[in-house]
Every structure is written in structure tokens, then in C-alpha cells.
Design a binder for these strands. Structure first.
Lengths: 226, 226
DNA sequence: CATCTTGTTGTACGATCGTTCAATAACGTA
DNA sequence: TACGTTATTGAACGATCGTACAACAAGATG
């Protein structure tokens, strides 16, 4: 009987370093977001998921919004970090780097409906929360720089390989628009797949993106302008 | 003084037909969604925006979720209807129809950060609400059919114009992937603009989409497959 | 003008929200 | 072992949530 009875030496809880506990709460927040969407963002749900009492959140974070912003920062950094790592891991051919980027974009853990749920909730908070806006601004620029860098490599490579006569003709405006279009295509396909996974395979999404980049570099002006 | 004093014959409220009141509540719901995001979805906020007391919502709708689902249905129908109308209004050239579609997509009232806010909140509800899922399924298929129809026109036109020898070569798979890629590009650009309106102009988004479709129809296989 | 129907009001209720705070106890340190 | 620091608990608070419902009144009907 009473298998639940605590032996006298068994502590009822374990103290942790503030940094570790903060990280655990951040992970619990994201987990709740995946499981319950926006409704998962209550201190009671989060603290229960973290195996901790309600009051502890306000001991490690000034308020709930700061915890959510911290979770958003972690989530963003995780994504950008994974992308940077995937690209860095690939060979130094621009084409292979792009392929690595796309493969990472269209495979787990990124390609997951739960991940979309998390993003959507954060987007929903974006417009009315200065905190979320600031975190977005601070973390997203690394992602933009990565995309622009990859495309710039590809376009200069294609430019130098194609012809030596008009080597400097590709205008800067094309890189800007190319990055915009590429990001839109990747994000749009990712969104589409997460909303309805049955309609196409990840490999097809990668092929679509690579074909877009291909038609971009085959002719110097690309599909960016008619 | 007391300009607020009601003259004895002034009625304190006006009775309306259930259908009219329902519609007014739906419009108020969308308005609150635009203004306050997810936090605007409370019966008190909505009823205040509609100039009506709290209890009236539960008199015209079985519960709050049904009101939200009705608002989602209206919002979807409004968008799809505007798109169908814009395309129907255009001349019968497939190119012009596509242009009309893109122009409607990338101009007000669709191209609006407030509209994005509304979408994001609905997406956030999608995964955990059977009601929202059903409404989405019922209303979105018209949109998909419109896009597929436009692209099919363009591809068959390009096919017959290009060469009579291999007229029947364009595989069906290309239309499917083309529609997927096109939708992704349009939605992705739209999302990007709403999140950060300063980075590119609507006309540039339209040009990007038309260039994509152009490179799709120039060579029979298009950028869909390498 | 009296009557009836029913759209509308506004209070009340229980549940849940985020936050506060005094009490508790885990665990490093002397 | 005794002490001190502080991470942790859990009850309590006021606010707000969605819903129910009895009372009210607008407007059609006779």
C-alpha cells in the first residue's frame, strides 16, 4: 500500500539554477504552444507542463509576456541556427549550399504542423506586442542575410560562368527582388504543406524552389523582371 | 444641459430581424479582430463594437465559437467572391485574367496588415476547432478551382501556340505543381508585404508572379521540374 | 388602446485568467 | 550539525471570461 508515500529523505522538489529553470520553462511554453495552440499560453498550463507550481513563472520572469517573448526568441534562434548549420555543413558549391538549405527547410523538425501552430500564434501576437516585434527584428535579420548571401553567390557564379563580356550587368535590384521572391516561395510552400500535407511531397517543394532559382540564374535578368 | 436625456418617445433600442442582427454581429467580430487581434474575440468586446448588450450574442448564436465560425465563413466568401468578380470583370484573355487576379490580390482591401491579423487568428484556431476546419474546407475549394482554372488556360494556350507537333505533351503533373507553386508564391509575397510593407511595392510582387507564370509557359516543362 | 410575440437588456454565476506574497524547504556553506 | 540563502510552493486576490436567465420593451397585430 501507499506506494506514493514519500520516503523521508526524498525531497519534494529540486532546486535548479535560475538559468536552467528559465530554459525549462521556455521549452514547456513551446511544448504547450504545439499541443494546445493559443490556449496553451496560460501560466497554469505551462507550469503544469514544466512540472512546477504556478508562482514559479513570476519568480523567473517579470510577467507572462516576457516568458512568451523569451520563448519566441529561443524558437527563432533555433530555426536560424539550424539553417546556418545545415548550410555550413554542406560543401562549398553554391548549388549544394542552396540544396542543403532547402532540404533543411522541407524536412523535420521544421516541416511540422505543430511548428506551424507555434508560428501562427507568435504572428498573432506580433502586431500588438512591442516585445515580440523587437525579438523578431533582432533574430530575423540573420535569416534574411543568409538567404541573400546564398542567392548572391549563385547569381555572381552564374554571371561569371555565362559570359565574360557583360559580367557586371546583373543589377542590384535583381538580388533584392530575387531574395524576396525566393523567401516568399519557400515560406508559401512550407505553409501550404503544413496546412495540407497530402497535396505534395517535400521533394517536390525542393524541386520547385530549385527550378525557380535555376530560371533566375539561367538568363541574367531572370524571372524577376519580364 | 442634459443633452443626453432621452425624450419619452425615443426608443432605447431598435429591434432588428435576426438575419440583420446576425450579420451586424459578424461584421463587428471581424472589426474587433482587425483592431485587437485574438484579444478582440470576447463577447463583451464584440457586443460593445456592435452597440449591443452582452447577452444578445447567445440569443442569435448558440455560442461564441459558432459566431466566430460564421465570421470566418463570411470573411472567406468575401475574399473568394472578390477574386472571382475581378477575374470575371477582366477581358477573356488568359493573361489579362491572371493580371486582374494578381492586381486584386496585391491591392486594398486584401493587401492590408489588418487583414493579415484576421487571417492569422483564424489559422490559429484552425487546428483545434472542427467548426473552423469545416468552414475552411467548404469555402477554400472555390479559390483553388479558380487558380487551377486560370493556370490551365494559360498552359493550354501556350501549348497550342507554341508547336502543333507535340501538342499533348504537357503532363497533368505540371498543372498540379504549377498551381501549388503559384499559390505559394502569391501567398508568400502577400504575407511578406503585410509583415513588412516597406521592402517592396505591390507592382513588384505582381511582376514576380507574372514572371513565374511566364517562365512556366515559355518552355513546355517550365520551372516546375528541372 | 389592449394584447401578444420576441428581440433585447443586464445582472448573476462559476470558471479561469495573471499576479502577489507569506510560508516552506532544498542545499551550499561554515 | 547548524545556519543562511533563495528557489519553490500554494493559497489568495481581483479581473475577466462565456453562458444562463428573468425582466423588460419595441413593434406588429387585433
Amino acid at each position: 500500500m501507499t506506494p506514493r508515500q514519500r520516503s523521508p529523505k526524498q525531497p519534494r522538489f529540486r532546486r535548479q539554477l535560475p538559468e536552467e529553470r528559465r530554459q525549462a520553462l521556455i521549452l514547456a511554453t513551446i511544448e504547450c504552444l504545439k499541443r494546445y495552440g493559443h490556449d496553451g499560453l496560460s501560466v497554469r498550463t505551462i507550469s503544469a507542463a514544466a512540472g512546477v507550481s504556478v508562482g514559479l513563472i513570476n519568480h523567473h520572469f517579470p510577467n507572462k509576456d516576457e516568458l512568451i517573448a523569451a520563448a519566441y526568441r529561443y524558437f527563432n534562434n533555433e530555426l536560424v541556427g539550424a539553417m546556418l548549420a545545415a548550410v555550413a555543413r554542406a560543401a562549398d558549391s553554391p548549388r549544394e549550399r542552396l540544396h542543403a538549405f532547402l532540404t533543411a527547410s522541407f524536412s523535420p523538425p521544421n516541416l511540422d504542423a505543430d511548428v506551424l501552430t507555434v508560428w501562427v500564434v507568435f504572428w498573432g501576437l506580433y502586431r500588438h506586442s512591442r516585445l515580440i516585434q523587437r525579438v523578431h527584428q533582432e533574430t530575423y535579420e540573420d535569416y534574411v542575410r543568409l538567404v541573400r548571401g546564398m542567392l548572391a553567390e549563385l547569381m555572381t557564379e552564374a554571371r561569371s560562368k555565362e559570359s565574360r563580356s557583360n559580367a557586371a550587368r546583373t543589377p542590384r535590384a535583381d538580388l533584392r527582388l530575387a531574395a524576396i521572391g525566393f523567401t516568399a516561395l519557400v515560406d508559401g510552400l512550407w505553409l501550404e504543406w503544413c496546412l495540407e500535407p497530402g497535396t505534395f511531397r517535400p521533394a517536390e517543394a525542393i524541386a520547385l524552389c530549385e527550378a525557380w532559382v535555376g530560371s533566375l540564374t539561367r538568363r541574367t535578368r531572370g524571372p524577376a523582371l519580364e
